Amino acid sequence: DIAFRGNFASADEDLRLTDRRAGRIREGTEDLAKALDGLKLGRIKTIVRAGTDHRVAVVLRGRGLSPEVTDTDPHEAGEAILESEARKPEAKATAKAVNAFTKQAYKVLKDHPVNRARVAKGEPPANTVVLRGAGVYPDLVPITERLHLKAVGIAGVALIRGMFRTVGMDVLEVPGATGGLDTNMTAKADAALGALRKYDLVVLHVKAPDLCGHDGNASEKIRVIERLDAMMGGIKARLPGEIVIAITADHSTPVALKEHSGDPVPLTIFGEGVRVDDVLNFDERSMAHGALGRICGQDVMNLLLNASNRAEKYGA
């Protein structure tokens, strides 16, 4: 199986994108995914599942497939959907199947009842799918075995919930956790605090700031950060004394860029016994002067294990 991340998107008859997220479609995506699920591309079968909002997962199933293919997502409205190309000779059949999927998906979706209804309401149709990030299911040691932690994740976005499950974490379903700007942060915070009675590690994910970055909406991003600040204040006020908290991000999405960037992200760790420094503000510029310095993401869990007195000692 070769899996892809994808978007339901809007395109003209020349397969040129008019809206990369189909107006951030939120309804009808299950029906659109079902219409594409099971498409035959020669001897290759497609498996299609709707994700959160405009997001979709596509799996190609067949013999001799390879993840060494390029994306079809041009990442910009006004650009034509890209032809997938093989990075290695053994991936030519996969690239051919991806390109066939692009064409068939448009044929199936362009007159779908969901899209006819959207066009009638003046909304952009979700009449195509753009793909990126071809990969195979990783063979990972579960976190319960690798770090000896019972862990759970809370997220509104299907992709993040899938990542939790891939590393052996449980997933809490929280009513109101939508993965959008309307997500119920209070409900997610309450669920996280409750989970601490049962789990060693609780990961709480909030997607909203990233959405504002992609939309270039600075004022809304400020409001989201203020809501996050209030959520964290509520968590801290009710936090058991022995708990250690880390606050960070997995990537930066600058409003000016409207896309992910490689800029470093802030990280703060606090709890009883955790050493403090002179930084008082949680922002990129202030935290560049913090005691943690610049570290890699793979170092964070070791820091948390140490701060919570769970680190495995070597030769001690």
Rank of each mutant, 00 (worst) to 15 (best):
26 R>F: 03
29 T>Y: 07
2 I>E: 04
186 T>G: 12
112 H>C: 02
194 G>R: 13
155 A>K: 09
100 A>F: 00
158 A>E: 15
185 M>Q: 11
284 E>A: 10
178 T>S: 14
158 A>F: 08
312 E>H: 14
128 T>W: 04
220 E>L: 13
275 R>E: 15
159 L>S: 02
8 F>E: 04
164 F>T: 09
86 A>G: 11
217 N>H: 13
142 P>A: 00
185 M>C: 01
122 G>R: 13
243 I>L: 09
53 D>G: 01
233 G>K: 15
300 V>T: 11
285 R>S: 07
2 I>Y: 08
4 F>I: 02
254 P>E: 08
49 R>I: 02
13 E>G: 06
36 L>E: 03
110 K>S: 02
55 R>C: 05
60 L>V: 00
88 K>C: 02
141 V>Q: 15
137 Y>N: 02
158 A>D: 15
26 R>S: 05
220 E>K: 14
46 T>Q: 00
107 K>F: 00
310 R>Q: 02
26 R>Q: 08
33 A>D: 05
129 V>Y: 08
5 R>V: 04
54 H>G: 07
78 G>P: 07
245 I>Q: 01
147 L>E: 14
2 I>W: 07
292 L>E: 02
136 V>M: 06
189 A>Y: 09
3 A>I: 07
253 T>L: 03
117 A>W: 09
80 A>F: 11
73 D>F: 04
250 D>F: 03
215 D>N: 12
219 S>I: 04
213 G>M: 12
267 L>K: 12
281 N>S: 09
80 A>P: 06
274 V>H: 10
310 R>I: 00
315 G>F: 14
314 Y>A: 14
8 F>K: 04
115 N>A: 05
172 L>C: 10
144 T>M: 05
228 L>V: 11
112 H>N: 07
115 N>Q: 07
174 V>T: 03
52 T>W: 10
161 R>F: 08
150 K>L: 03
1 D>G: 15
66 S>W: 12
293 G>Q: 15
251 H>C: 05
212 C>I: 01
59 V>H: 13
94 T>Y: 11
152 V>P: 03
146 R>D: 12
273 G>T: 07
147 L>R: 11
53 D>E: 14
140 L>P: 04
304 L>W: 10
256 A>G: 14
304 L>F: 09
79 E>M: 10
115 N>D: 06
134 A>I: 06
284 E>M: 03
202 V>I: 08
258 K>W: 01
25 I>N: 10
166 T>I: 12
226 E>S: 06
284 E>W: 07
72 T>C: 03
206 V>W: 05
86 A>D: 10
25 I>Y: 13
32 L>S: 01
285 R>T: 06
125 P>M: 02
243 I>T: 15
297 G>N: 13
202 V>S: 09
